[in-house]
Amino acid sequence: MNMFKNAGTMLLPDHGLGDGGDMGCLLTAGRAVCAVIATWLVLVVLLFLPCLFPTRWMYYIYSPASVGLWMLAMAVAPVAVLIVKREWIRKGR
């Protein structure tokens, strides 16, 4: 692999991004942001899903422990999704 691309009279460093250049970085960042937002949306839907259950269950479903675990999941789940989907985030496949 050539370290520099020939761009007319200038030599530009090759960062291994292919022909995408800066656009490849933007697409990668965009896919990562979309993955995090989608994870948060799924967790919010799961938070409000128990509203379909009888009201007497609400105390047990929304106990301080379960809300604390949900808040922990809001911080940990996006990291796990980014690790699992890193190939898709990097290459779009």
Rank of each mutant, 00 (worst) to 15 (best):
M10P: 00
G30W: 12
A29Q: 15
V84W: 07
Y62I: 02
A77G: 04
M10Y: 02
P50H: 06
Y60K: 03
L52I: 10
L11V: 11
V44W: 01
R93F: 04
A38N: 05
A77I: 09
V76C: 15
L41I: 12
P13R: 04
V79F: 13
L46M: 12
W57K: 03
A73S: 11
T39Q: 10
N2G: 00
M74S: 04
A73L: 13
P54S: 08
G24Y: 07
L43C: 12
G18H: 13
L47D: 03
Y60A: 10
K85H: 02
M3S: 08
M3A: 08
M58S: 07
M71F: 04
L43F: 07
S66C: 12
G16T: 03
Y59W: 11
I83E: 11
Y62W: 11
C34V: 13
L26D: 14
V36S: 10
R90Y: 01
G30C: 06
V33W: 06
P64T: 04
L82C: 04
G8Q: 02
I83Y: 13
G8V: 04
T9Y: 06
P54K: 04
F48G: 08
R56T: 09
F53N: 08
L27E: 13
Y60Q: 06
I89W: 00
C34A: 14
T55D: 10
A29I: 10
T55C: 09
P54V: 07
H15W: 10
P50N: 10
G18P: 07
V45I: 14
W88A: 02
M10A: 13
L26P: 06
G21Q: 06
L46G: 09
G18N: 08
T39I: 09
M58T: 02
D19K: 13
S66T: 11
Y59F: 11
L11R: 05
K91W: 14
M23V: 01
F4I: 07
H15K: 09
P78V: 11
C51I: 13
H15L: 12
P50A: 05
R90D: 01
L46A: 08
P54C: 05
D22A: 15
H15S: 08
P78Y: 06
L11W: 07
V45L: 14
K5S: 03
L49N: 08
G92A: 01
L72V: 07
G20P: 01
L17V: 03
Y59H: 12
G20A: 11
C51E: 15
A32M: 14
V81A: 11
A73F: 09
L47G: 01
A77C: 11
W70Y: 07
L26K: 12
W57Q: 07
D19A: 02
T55V: 14
P50V: 03
V67N: 00
N6E: 15
R31N: 02
L12P: 04
F4S: 04
G8Y: 00
M10F: 02
R86N: 06
V42C: 10
L52W: 07
D19S: 05
G18V: 06
E87V: 01
K5W: 02
M1Q: 03
M10D: 09
V76R: 15
P13Y: 04
C34W: 15
G24W: 02
L43D: 09
A35D: 04
R90T: 00
P50M: 03
Y59A: 14
G21H: 07
M74C: 14
Y60L: 05
A75N: 05
V44P: 01
L43R: 14
T55M: 12
T28A: 07
